[in-house]
Nucleic acid binder design. Structure first.
Lengths: 201, 201
DNA sequence: AAACTCCAGTAAACGACGTTCAATTAGACC
DNA sequence: GGTCTAATTGAACGTCGTTTACTGGAGTTT
């Protein structure tokens, strides 16, 4: 078994989170456990609890990375002067990212934290910053509408797309429709653009 | 412990499903287990496996009831000659039903069946019949568009609303927005109507 | 260099989980 | 009453997250 000389406190902490990320990415959140993680890093399960509050703590750190990665994917989306096209480009960035990191993305929303456990605030802030980017496109489409309306549309399109993609990832989209997720997402984007374009207030 | 004289095979089967439904409705799917169920009916856990293949089997039967109940809620939605109003009425029926049966509704989508386990076909058919009802409203709004377009819009609005409601039920809608689910759902309906009304093809 | 303190890490345990199975036992039939 | 069958049990298996008493090596003090 590994001894403390092998890794400093910080090294071990990042070893744990890195390995957790790999395991979840490869095997999915269902196959992830305290014992499989500790086995993978060459320590026993108890050690994890000296460095992290619980498994939730570890998964949350992995999830944070996943969210940061999505923000980067957004930042690297193909630029376009047309806000409508830009919304589609963000959709492609989103689709590309979650396709690449399917299991990690699912972990973000499938991992069941124990009840009452509040969502860490930077989760919310990370998502809010993505929605701000989307809302800006809506503002560009109809500059006459106020900022709140654009933000709400951004939230709606984000929630809709996220949800449909989640359904797809968990294999349940086929309960509702037998169509390609990429097509569905872009159709949703078109739908939101069309509705926003024709809004009266 | 209960003996076989207490319940016939059929009585016991329905006792199991009834009790499972009650337990899930009251405590949520997370608190539901083979042992808690068997304790509630006065048998041991092993007995469950003589009458059902596994827990999945039992939960699936409960879920089927939930879907049937939703179909009834749709059928009992306030009628309206205006297809746009009717879509909102269906949305209200949906919201009312899942508010009433929150935990059962969550069980439908949160219960993790083991991998590769195919979704029972009548699940899909039950949902398809709901979507047909919605698609009819879209057909009435724009009779000039073909049936396939209406059906796809029906699927899209169903998926969007279902997803947003799921996010809300699992407490994760607040990750994205801080708004009342009823408002959001009706706004989504309006948006889909607006977009459908202005479709070009 | 020996003694001492401290704490990272271990192994074992706890109480849960889904599921299986040999043994028992109650009811049905002859 | 005896025999057969099938329902039911209780213990067991291997899993899970988490806690805990103990150990032994590293760093510090004498």
């Amino acid at each position: 078994m590994a001894r403390r000389a092998d890794h400093s406190k910080e090294e071990l902490a990042s070893l744990v989170v890195n390995t957790a990320e790999e395991l979840i990415a490869e095997e999915g959140i269902d196959a992830f456990s305290a014992r499989s993680l500790s086995r993978a890093i060459g320590y026993t399960a108890g050690t994890l609890y000296h460095h992290f509050k619980d498994l939730d703590d570890i998964v949350t750190q992995v999830n944070t990375r996943t969210l940061v990665g999505l923000a980067r994917a957004f930042a690297e989306a193909t630029p376009s002067a047309d806000p409508r096209q830009m919304l589609h480009n963000y959709a492609d960035a989103f689709l590309g990212y979650i396709t690449l990191k399917r299991n990690l993305w699912n972990a973000l929303f499938e991992f069941r934290r124990k009840p009452d456990q509040p969502v860490p605030p930077w989760y919310i802030e990370a998502i809010a910053s993505l929605i701000r980017i989307i809302a800006q496109c809506f503002s560009d489409i109809r500059p006459d509408l106020d900022e709140k309306t654009a933000r709400q549309s951004g939230q709606l399109v984000f929630a809709s797309i996220h949800s449909v993609v989640s359904l797809d990832s968990s294999g349940r989209l086929s309960l509702i429709m037998d169509r390609d997720i990429t097509k569905v997402v872009h159709e949703l984007v078109d739908m939101h653009i069309l509705a926003y374009t024709h809004r009266t207030k």
